[in-house]
Design a binder for these strands. Structure first.
Lengths: 221, 221
DNA sequence: GTATGTGAATTTCTTCACAGCA
DNA sequence: TGCTGTGAAGAAATTCACATAC
């Protein structure tokens, strides 16, 4: 595990350039698995065991981790506490992050009450909507503001993460407003392809698309 | 466009074996784009235009479609109505599908009122929960039954698609119950790795994981 | 003996580039 | 001319297999 910490620090803002995209998406699965093992009071696990539990190949896991450092002990496996700490740092989950929610409809309400976010340090601090009826009310204790206020409110809040839970037709507008307000990472739930400028990360969670893919496999495969 | 239809029919249950996974996931994006173009009263579009709109490379689109037939006209592009019809068939979206919902909490309620499913032919016909307080009530006009009744109810309903919106700790149990009841395709919203036997398709929509991935990019890249 | 970390081999996916058709 | 469909080339990701370390 040698000089891993200083390695991570030195590369913190600009590096990991050659890490495959799929690796990054798997890190979260490893972390989930490791948290589960720790809940079962386990201290160590081999790549083979984590592989079995996640359904990911053991060599894949070892290579994925190798992009970030050497975290295991030959003959023994991985110290779960240490690995959890390291992966948490690598993923940037060692700090709290404020989140803006756009759209206070059904989905927005469900997202606002989803406890899974808070557990990982994501806190929805404000919601925005175009509907005058909703503005001024709240979702639980999250205040709802008018979308026009987004930029102004976020100069105080300084949130860098946004959730877009509006109809498709309003999604690009919502994303543009978030980006203008300084948000750097966005989870979009609208079934639409949204363009953002380089430097902004957007990920789509498109239920319709997921159902269509299921439909394909139902017919074939 | 020749004998495309008979090709699709003849291959209907066992084929498309060599279609790359990513291709299948993109088909849904093409379809979304094509519907949008049709809404704008457009009759044809080139691969270059669809590429621009979806952010997917034009050669990629052409190759993706080529796994299923020849749908374009050189010099002209694609007839949007014909292509929509073909893709709809390929994706299996030309028939209505009944869907079972497991978990009648916040997320379940949001899913039950999500109109996007119905628009693509997916209809949630019943919900199931372990909570005795909820059993016997309904989500909109979707009745809520006890999870124990799942198998018996589905002998009548015959649904092949399930949505799992329960806590992680109950997700494997919910999936097992669905599979036992004859469900073949499952969308799982719990942040957990679920095992299913071959022949069953399961896709995970893990918001926590998506947020963690955003967090990674927020720190690096 | 056991299990990691990693170059090399393999497989999979994407992009190029162009022949052929409207 | 304009654009498709596709074999060939290239890039990327996965898996193998083994030297190395405990």
């Amino acid at each position: 595990m040698r000089d891993t910490d200083s390695l991570i620090d030195s590369l913190a803002h600009d590096a990991f350039k050659k890490v495959p995209q799929p690796t990054i998406e798997r890190l979260s699965a490893y972390l989930q698995c490791i948290r589960g093992l720790r809940d079962e009071e386990r201290d160590t696990a081999s790549s083979a065991e984590i592989a079995r539990r996640t359904g990911i190949n053991a060599a894949q896991l070892r290579k994925d981790l190798s992009y970030f450092g050497e975290f295991g002990t030959p003959g023994l496996g991985y110290d779960l506490q240490a690995l959890e700490t390291q992966l948490t740092r690598i993923m940037g989950l060692d700090e709290e992050r404020d989140v803006l929610l756009i759209g206070a409809g059904n989905l927005g309400r469900a997202l606002s009450s989803y406890t899974g976010f808070g557990r990982r340090g994501f806190r929805i601090v404000a919601a925005f909507d175009l509907d005058g009826e909703k503005v001024g009310t709240s979702l639980g204790n999250i205040p709802i503001f008018h979308l026009q206020e987004l930029s102004r409110r976020n100069t105080e809040l300084g949130a860098q993460v946004g959730l877009v839970a509006v109809p498709s037709s309003a999604a690009q507008e919502a994303v543009d407003a978030l980006v203008a307000a300084g948000v750097k990472a966005i989870l979009n739930f609208a079934p639409a392809t949204i363009g953002v400028r380089p430097g902004i990360t957007i990920r789509n969670v498109d239920l319709t698309s997921q159902m269509e893919i299921l439909s394909f496999y139902l017919r074939h495969g």
